[in-house]
């Protein structure tokens, strides 16, 4: 009997250990390749690294030089325009689609995946498709000309003042369906009796949504904002595929700036500094969000 006991003991101990053993490699990988490299990048941003990492400490010189660069300032202004429009338009379109889909319409099961489908595409595909579609010589403008509307002009993608808005169009097209799904889940979560109560109270559809439903979607708004915001800051592949940062530098965003300075312009120190600034920006949004979410759960 004691032998059996011992075996059972090893088995239970092994069962306790298995989750830890299975998780250990991924925890180690994340610690090194995510957090380790964050620290490494932070360190590089304080050195005079050029083409290769160097370890000569120069303090905050890179940050000072970074904010003197017109290219970085353009990238920041572009980010503000892009992020503001992208988040606002996605939220409005997503909410509108969700409310319309929530009217118990026929064929909802078919429409929902149609709206959601662009999310399944890579930004590279979206960018390439929209590049052709918006190209005056190939896409919309050309088609309109062929159909006989020869005065039609839509050359935003070649216009240095308007090109940034084509980024917004493509990004909104890709993400609105996803935002719609988030709002739709929120709408479905609302207690049906509340809607009945509002009906008996005599709320018009407009009042119902403005006074009751939309305030109840607050958590969905918050999640949508956080997700869209960090997607806006990370935007890189869409820019590369759609405009390549051009015309000129008109659609440069911090992510493309960071890549080009770090890996193609031999200014790794400045690139690292810009990466740290981006990280801080994301953290400024994410930390209060996580704090409020986790704090709420503990209650």
């Amino acid at each position: 009997m004691p032998v059996q006991n011992n075996r059972a003991d090893i088995r239970t101990r092994l069962q306790d250990l298995i989750p830890k053993i299975v998780l250990a490699p991924s925890v180690a990988a994340i610690l090194i390749f995510v957090y380790g490299f964050i620290v490494f990048t932070g360190y590089l941003s304080l050195t005079d690294s050029k083409m290769l990492p160097s370890f000569d400490f120069v303090g905050f010189d890179n940050y000072a030089r970074l904010f003197d660069l017109p290219a970085w300032n353009t990238a920041l202004i572009n980010l503000v325009i892009f992020a503001a429009l992208y988040i606002a338009i996605c939220t409005v379109i997503g909410l509108a689609l969700a409310i319309l889909l929530d009217q118990k319409i026929r064929g909802e099961g078919l429409l929902r995946p149609i709206y959601l489908y662009p999310m399944a595409l890579s930004f590279i595909v979206t960018g390439t498709a929209w590049k052709w579609f918006l190209d005056p010589g190939l896409g919309l403008e050309n088609t309109m000309h062929l159909w006989g509307w020869t005065d039609f002009q839509f050359g935003w993608i070649k216009d240095r003042h308007m090109a940034i808005y084509t980024l917004v169009i493509a990004a909104v097209w890709q993400t609105s369906g996803f935002v719609m799904a988030m709002f739709l889940a929120g709408l479905r979560g609302i207690d049906n009796e509340i809607l009945k109560a509002a009906q008996i109270d005599g709320a018009s559809n407009f009042a119902l949504y403005r006074r009751i439903v939309i305030p109840l979607l607050r958590p969905a708004f918050l999640s949508a904002f956080v997700i869209l915001f960090h997607m806006a800051i990370k935007s890189y592949d869409l820019v590369i595929a759609l405009t390549g940062g051009g015309p000129g530098r008109a659609t440069e965003l911090p992510a493309t700036f960071m890549y080009s300075y770090t890996f193609t312009r031999n200014s790794m120190g400045i690139g690292a500094a810009s990466a740290v600034i981006m990280l801080m920006t994301v953290a400024a949004i994410m930390i209060p969000y996580l704090y409020s979410e986790l704090g709420r759960k503990e209650k």
Binding site: D191, E193, I194, K196, A197, A198, Q199, I200, D201, G202, A203, R211, I212, P215, L216, R218
Partner: peptide, 21 residues
């Protein structure tokens, strides 16, 4: 006739209070 025009009031099982008000 619309529920709001019947001059009735209803108390629900889940109370159905508006949580944001």
């Amino acid at each position: 006739v619309h529920p709001s025009k019947r001059n009735i009031a209803m108390v629900f099982q889940s109370y159905a209070l508006y949580p944001n008000m």
